[in-house]
């Protein structure tokens, strides 16, 4: 049985997949994080230029474009850390854990933090911030005058291998990726940017945490189609069987399933984000 057909069987149970994805992420290293220290002003994260390219959507209906042209853009070289998010909630107290509206972040928002303005030992300052909602991620991005990457942008950057822009046949990358998927989520996330950078110099697109994208709510595989499987049938039985770009790209199916199962106020143990930006002309 191919991984595609396995996934096909799993997809209608959106929650299982949501759990699969929330639980499937693990750190690249097993080293114990250093104890939290008082927050200093975090050094600004470096951004890497991702050249223009073509993203081929994983699944498409007959109406979807076969290719999405992605303009060149800048992407943070690593996910946003707890230290950086601490600076944000300090400046914008309505995003603190006890203050935030449930409309914008569910009750497990920053649950691993010790307090409103204290990440604590479960959330080392240099580790990626997790348990953040799409609204919170977006608000952070705006606060630093950036934005979240689109699905097409994120996938284009993440499609790179260690040594070339097209990572599909990068055996080492695939090995590392699937090793990560198979590991349980660590209680404490390891530090960012420990993993080997990809061709564009970007760390942690695979192997650390899942990441929000700006248009997560354009993924319509499950969601309302759980009640009415029409769309799903269109995707998987009709167009899907010919429309799936690469049925061996199991990790990409998982990302798609995660996006389609999330609500904008959801937070999970291994879902963080990084920011993007248009290049200055």
């Amino acid at each position: 049985m191919t991984s595609f057909s396995r996934l096909r069987r799993l997809l209608p149970t959106g929650l299982v997949l949501a759990g699969l994805l929330a639980g499937g992420a693990a750190g690249a290293t097993a080293t114990a994080p250093s104890p939290a220290r008082p927050a200093a002003d975090p050094a600004p994260v470096a951004m890497r230029r991702i050249p223009a390219g073509v993203y081929v959507p994983l699944l498409r209906t007959p109406k979807d474009p076969a290719q999405v042209h992605v303009a060149s853009y800048l992407l943070d070289e690593r996910p946003v850390t707890n230290a950086e998010f601490l600076a944000f909630v300090t400046a914008q107290p309505h995003w603190q854990r006890s203050m935030v509206s449930r409309l914008f972040a569910d009750s497990s928002y920053l649950e691993n933090w010790a307090g409103d303005r204290e990440p604590g030992v479960q959330a080392p300052l240099n580790s990626p911030v997790v348990r953040v909602s799409w609204f919170a991620a977006r608000a952070y991005a705006r606060w630093v005058s950036k934005r979240l990457p689109s699905t097409a942008e994120w996938e284009l950057a993440a499609g790179a291998g260690y040594t070339r822009p097209d990572g599909r046949n990068d055996e080492q990358l695939n090995h590392d990726l699937y090793a990560w998927l198979a590991r349980p989520v660590p209680d404490i996330q390891p530090a960012v940017a420990r993993g080997r950078p990809n061709f564009y110099g970007v760390h942690d697109l695979h192997g650390l945490v899942w990441e929000w994208v700006d248009d997560f709510n354009s993924a319509m595989v499950t969601g309302e189609s759980r009640g009415d499987s029409g769309l799903e049938r269109d995707l998987f039985c009709g167009a899907g069987s010919v429309g799936a770009k690469d049925t061996t790209d199991f990790a990409a199916f998982m990302r798609l399933a995660l996006r389609s199962s999330l609500k904008a106020n959801n937070t999970t143990t291994a879902l963080g984000f990084r920011c993007a930006k248009d290049p200055t002309p």
């Binding site: 929650l15 299982v16 949501a18 759990g19 699969l20 994805l21 929330a22 639980g23 499937g24 006890s98 203050m99 935030v100 509206s101 449930r102 569910d106 009750s107 497990s108 349980p184 989520v185 609500k263 106020n265 959801n266 937070t267 999970t268 143990t269």
Partner: peptide, 15 residues
């Protein structure tokens, strides 16, 4: 195993 982690908390909370 992953089923166990599938509980997104969606409830309203007082704050």
């Amino acid at each position: 195993l992953f089923l166990l982690t599938a509980s997104f908390a969606l409830g309203a909370g007082a704050a």
